[in-house]
Amino acid sequence: MSAGQVIFLLVGAVTLGSGIAAVNARKMLHAALWLVLSLLGVAFIFALLEASFFAVVQVLVYIGAIAILIIFAVMLSRSSLTDEGTQTNPRWWLAALGLLILFVGICAAILLWPKVTSIPAPLPASATDLATLGKELVNPNGYLVPFELSSILLLATLVGAIYTAVEKKEEIKK
């Protein structure tokens, strides 16, 4: 067992463990903090896949922005901040059972797939070159259109989120 495998197992265990904790924690604030840990684990996984750029982005976007956003949402909805009762639906075991079966099935499918044993060649330096990725994103023959579309999506989100969350006058009167 190589050092890489050890690290992977450790990181994977942390990720999955904190993920389970995140979906089971009774306090929403705790769940959000567990989520942060789980996302950090995913960032490590990205690093192990030699996608260091996305590891950084993962930390910045998910932990820096999304997780903080969730914590804000928890704090703004007072009942979820104070609620300490059971947080799951009564028939959670049914879901757990179904998902376990699904998981086993997927694992079986993965292991039976011949290409799953393929070994990665050493990554060429150009593949991790951010400039290449950047140029591809703005290349008309590359990914310019999805790139621009995503920028429009972000703008629409910005406007939509503000519009949805803003307190309207009639509601204040009530």
Binding site: S80, T88, N89, A95
Partner: peptide, 9 residues
């Protein structure tokens, strides 16, 4: 997603 009662969860 399936089991949480809380939307944030």
């Amino acid at each position: 997603v399936i089991t949480r009662k809380n939307l944030v969860g």
